[in-house]
């Protein structure tokens, strides 16, 4: 019986193609997010070089990220030079609200995307004069799931939880809460 094709015991009356090379297994051991992580490391190095402290704000949609930013920017604008990168699927509504406080802002529209990644942030930074900025606030797309996996190069991830969205959100969406260095209850 042919061990390649399992044909019967009556004799082997056919040829196998010469090109049938044996399969081989090769070790890859490469991080799937290595590209994002490499770009995030580049962003982090850029922030460090410019002396910019960076926060990545994550939460559900509507929990108050933009309102918190507006209030913070107005209260501290005489002490710290801020800039804000806004992430949303569509519209420039949030960047417009931030710009109204007098803070430089740039809107990233992710289209179908559910999170910001390091590549988008790297290009977003091209819209600012980084020399003049001390603190960069990145407002991620409102989503409690996907932003957990993507490092943007920030110093700290800040999760905002508004009690009206349900107090059990940390139990339901633990990775993001676990990943954050700071959690604010609104």
């Amino acid at each position: 019986m042919c061990i390649d094709c399992g044909c019967g015991p009556s004799g082997h009356d056919h040829q196998h193609k010469e090109t049938e090379a044996p399969r081989k297994t090769i070790s890859v051991e490469e991080d799937i997010l290595s590209k994002n992580n490499r770009l995030a490391a580049g962003n982090r190095a850029l922030f460090a070089r410019q002396g910019i402290f960076t926060l990545n704000l994550v939460s559900s949609p509507g929990s108050g990220k933009t309102s918190l930013l507006e209030k913070t920017l107005v209260d501290l604008k005489n002490e710290i030079n801020f800039a804000v990168l806004e992430g949303d699927q569509q519209t420039t509504n949030d960047a417009d609200r931030i710009a109204a406080t007098g803070t430089p802002a740039h809107q990233i529209n992710t289209g179908a995307g559910c999170h910001l990644d390091a590549h988008m942030v790297g290009h977003g930074l091209e819209h600012f004069d980084l020399e003049t900025i001390q603190m960069m606030m990145i407002e991620n797309v409102g989503n409690l799931v996907c932003p957990a996996s993507f490092d943007l190069g920030e110093d700290f991830k800040v999760t905002l939880l508004s009690v009206t969205e349900g107090e059990d959100k940390p139990l339901k969406y633990p990775p993001l809460f676990r990943d954050s260095e700071i959690m604010l209850i609104n």
Binding site: A21, P22, R23, K24, T25, I26, S27, V28, E29, E30, D31, I32, L33, S149, R178
Partner: peptide, 16 residues
């Protein structure tokens, strides 16, 4: 502290 569990990598491939 997490020891492991957040990995996401390509371990190996089978090729000709």
């Amino acid at each position: 502290d997490l020891v492991c569990g957040e990995e996401m990598r390509i371990k190996e491939m089978e090729i000709d």
